[in-house]
Amino acid sequence: MEVSVTVNGEVRTADVEPRTLLVHFLRDDLGLTGTNIGCDTSSCGACTVLVDGRSAKSCTMLAVQADGADVTTIEGLAGEDGLHPMQEAFHECHALQCGYCTPGMVMAAVSLVDEYSDMDADGVREGLEGNLCRCTGYQNIVKAVLAASE
């Protein structure tokens, strides 16, 4: 089936099997490998991207469901003037170690901050419940998201 998705501001069209997951479309068809896969039960959030501005687990959507949608991946986050403030905050706060959960965590955090203003630490912790990190213990991730939300 042909799908046409605006990815990071650019219209991308491809012929995919109907069963193709959005994450595989992004990774295998478009070569955008920044979005990672960490599980097969929609539990870990490593594959989080923005679909029409809101965070979505791209392993839980079919590519055909994204037909006509606007998708932002980690590759589309940094601008010409450098890293996105959320990426910058993760760097400044040492909120990543191995970095595998990081693209998904950053995208989820961008969406969270966009959706809720004036969050406290508990709000960030609850808001990121769907994104797992095995390295950091989350303390610096929470710090980074709070810093970026200011």
Partner: peptide, 21 residues
């Protein structure tokens, strides 16, 4: 000192095994 590993990991530039073309 902030990590020099971070920019590649924060932008999707880093290549993990499944990312290899």
């Amino acid at each position: 000192r902030l990590r020099k590993e971070d920019p590649a990991l924060l932008t999707g530039e880093a290549k993990f095994i499944d990312d290899l073309d």
